[in-house]
Amino acid sequence: MAKRIDVSGLSAFYGSHKAIDDISMTVEPRSVTAFIGPSGCGKSTFLRTLNRMHEVTPGGRVEGKVLLDDENLYGSGVDPVAVRRTVGMVFQRPNPFPTMSIFDNVAAGLRLNGTVKKKSELNDVVEKSLKGANLWNEVKDRLNKPGSGLSGGQQQRLCIARAIAVEPQVLLMDEPCSALDPISTLAIEDLIGELKERFTIVIVTHNMQQAARVSDRTAFFNLSAVGQPGKLVEIDETERIFSNPSVQDTEDYISGRFG
């Protein structure tokens, strides 16, 4: 089920601006990998190259290789749609579909993909996903109300439920907890712990404690100067990164002696 991701020599551009430069790393299957680094260093950009969402931005361009269990995502003949079905994503800002109800939002991935399921089966999936995202109790009485009527944090959990409903093999999460209260954050972290039994998870976070709590491996990104492309400084076991990193910059960033 879960897949290994092998990135080699990956650079991403916005038009002529190079946002990330020559990144190589391995993301282990059935594990949580955290991305940390200062704002604007290209964490979101890199994350989006992992399910071919970067090219959706006008002017977006990628060089290099991303192997998903030995298959290059950017090889010729690879269907980006198939890639995105395998590699799901939760965005930095919640984006429920405004025309759909809460139920339909969670069922959207299955419905829109034409993976037609029986109504009862769909009900089960929706309930399971909403419970997984710790939202079920709050919305079970108004599943038919529009998803945009939820609070920001609830909307984010709705988006997480929507992403896990299609059972992707890799789940990319871009600061999924930046809009959440500590209780929901904890629920999401528990959820991540459960999901990693089955999926490969990559999470971007600005919260060091969160990275230390949930991740098995941590990657630190940085940029040498404003306007320069972001680079991968190092990636290692989370424990090592937080106790004894091999690069001085990493230690400075983690201990708050940055810039």
């Binding site: 969402m53 749609v81 995105r84 800002r93 984006n95 959207a108 829109l112 993909n113 992403a163």
Partner: peptide, 26 residues
């Protein structure tokens, strides 16, 4: 908003279906 198109694309929905089921209804 572009976020909606991206949300749908990231679920592995093809572009034409995204347009038909998300962009047009909105």
């Amino acid at each position: 908003p572009n976020e909606l198109r991206e949300a749908s694309l990231a679920l592995g929905v093809p572009k034409w279906r995204t347009i038909l089921k998300v962009v047009l209804p909105t």
